[in-house]
Amino acid sequence: MKQDRREFLRKAGIGALAGIGALAGLNPLSALEKTDMSALSGKPVPGRTRWGMLIDTRSCTDGCRQCVTACHRAHNVPDFGDRKNEVKWIWKSRYEQAFPTSGTQFQKPELLGREVLTLCNHCAEPPCTRACPTQATFKRRDGIVAMDYHRCIGCRFCMAACPYGSRSFNWLDPRPAISEYNREFPTRERGVVEKCNFCSERLARGLQPACVESCPGKAITFGDLNDPGSTIRRMLSEQETMQRKPELGTLPSVFYII
């Protein structure tokens, strides 16, 4: 009896600690961080989900912008035509910009300047969600770093915190700058931050992200990083891949084959 009581107290104590840890975001293994994706698709999926992406830069054609166009059309991303007010969810960077801490000496000459797709990394340890004062940006149970445009106060802390330059702010009213309005996705107001959402609205309908679907070279693989049987996991285990700025400990969910 006495033993049982002690055991109960010990477990209750651990439970309370885990609860506090989860609330404070201190414990990365807590239930709040990773759960099943039933909240997302409506149909329960065994195991936990962490959506991830593998981009094969060898199959990505220089000058091709089909994924960028598809994404920006699907999500009503405005085009202001100038760099200062620019809003972008996915774009092409040069290799040495995307991987500034990788060595560039004596590499294949065609590597420098190669176009690399860059987008939100949906980090497992996102610095942006840590910095947000209102939880307007947060990590979903399926690993997607999401935005609540109705809660964002526009302080741009997440932009300063993001080490990948993946976030954009609506410096002006975006609506007049949307060339082809997609009625199936909301537009934003000026004064809030936005970024790639891993096409969570398409995932919910069982579709692949718009960039994946539109790529003529099939350069992008999307899938569940927590499922050992998924195609993306098989490819990751078979090939050498890179993440952007791994030294920062953000654990990006976007991987690259160079």
């Binding site: 760099r83 200062k84 007010n85 954009s168 410096w171 000026r190 004064g191």
Partner: peptide, 9 residues
Amino acid sequence: GLGVTGMGR
């Protein structure tokens, strides 16, 4: 909007 300032992306 804050586009009237010199700040940008």
